[in-house]
Write a protein that binds this DNA or RNA. Structure first.
Lengths: 230, 230
DNA sequence: TTATTTAATTGCAAATAGCAAATATTTGCT
DNA sequence: AGCAAATATTTGCTATTTGCAATTAAATAA
């Protein structure tokens, strides 16, 4: 079997989400003015796999992210792969899409000229199949929010229960019931009290500080939260 | 930006599952005796993306599947993509893994010499990262079984409720409670009565025939089935 | 006819979820 | 200091859902 088959173009695209002003936002990057296609257009941050430099796809993602933002993500997972003959005018192209989460306070050193944040609901117009990728990312995040600790990766290492509930609500795009939320979060052993004082936010009783009981994603068998009808 | 980057090798690998003898089984294909690497070894069916012939990744999967088995799958979804510099001695390689389901009675025209079925629990030894791919496939199938109609794609178009419950049990590797199962399946409107006589299996009351209420995968918000402890 | 086998339904106790109200602990105002 | 307002946290109750076992239904086999 010959190894001289013509090969597809291989890239990664990253859906970077953060919580800004209480809503989910999406990182966009502006393509180079002299790019072969879509010059100057705002798209998902992405780039070619460098066979000679990147050890793995995750390496490519980290390099792309570092190049655009100078930082590291808090959480990353693979989303899906789009590959066909039509998505890129340069020829058969394949893109592996990743989802990355990042708490807002860790966003530093953004190149203000070449990157910007956009809301995900509604999602801005994006070229190629990037809207479909964002839709996949939202579906994934929403799905996992129902039975895992995923939304917590949009918060600082320590956080309060009202903050935690607010991220879940932002991600699920749905009101939750507080007493049920607390009950279930406690049942699952998702969080533990953090050392340090309670958080004074201004008025009202200060909230206790918590942190994740495990640093990695926790999957719970059952649905974490019920809806609130009223 | 030059398009003359060296590019990774791009392949697809397919985890084809069916229900044989009441348990989940996995299709293996034997590599060519004169293959550059791992000649004659049993692996997941797979192959290169043909830039000149395949319109999309799904096309590649269908072609690979047709080549090995002569048939079509009942259900197919993308699993995940493995890509790094180490998984293939020929160089940086990327494989998009797919999951495919097929009811046993639709398995026809297998090349007996070059393909065979193997149980998934335990999973046979497989080269490359194929065991990891199978593990992903099992996790996916099991996860989706809890809240979708996915296991039904391992059955004929019409089936009985005891048959349906048996596939769910085989996929989940867990006993279910029949009254809860029936209640929830009915609640979700997953199935409707099929035309035709009841199914006589020999002894006992004959079971009514049903079919999926929709031909595509149905996702339910809630967990479809509780465990049975006793 | 009657025992046996498998399918399908029913009834009920225990667990869980959703809702509303009460209680706790702070800040800001007078 | 004392009280209102704001936010956090807990508690109690009802309705729903779940898990389990028992019952009923419809066939075959002897």
């Amino acid at each position: 079997m010959s190894e001289d088959f013509p090969k597809p173009i291989v890239t990664v695209d990253v859906v970077v989400l953060t919580l800004k002003d209480g809503v989910l936002q999406l990182l966009l990057a502006q393509r180079a003015k002299d790019a072969a296609i879509a010059p100057g257009v705002w798209t998902l941050p992405g780039g070619f796999v460098h066979v000679d430099g990147d050890d793995s796809l995750e390496d490519t993602v980290r390099r792309v992210f570092r190049t655009k933002t100078g930082g590291e993500v808090a959480y990353m997972e693979q989303l899906c792969t789009f590959g066909n003959a039509r998505r890129d005018p340069r020829g058969w192209s394949l893109s592996v899409a990743y989802l990355a989460l990042l708490p807002e306070h860790k966003v530093t050193g953004l190149d203000e000229q070449r990157t910007r944040w956009a809301t995900v609901r509604p999602c801005p117009d994006l070229p190629f199949d990037h809207r479909a990728i964002v839709a996949q990312a939202l579906a994934r995040v929403r799905g996992k929010a129902a039975y895992s600790s995923l939304p917590a990766f949009l918060l600082p290492d320590t956080f309060t229960l009202p903050q935690l509930m607010a991220v879940y609500e932002a991600v699920l795009d749905q009101q939750l019931d507080q007493s049920t939320f607390r009950r279930k979060v406690a049942e699952q052993g998702m969080i533990v009290k953090a050392r340090g004082a309670h958080l004074h936010t201004g008025a009202g009783r200060p909230a206790a500080l918590y942190k994740l009981s495990r640093p990695a994603l926790q999957d719970f068998g059952r649905v974490l939260l019920g809806t609130r009808d009223a």
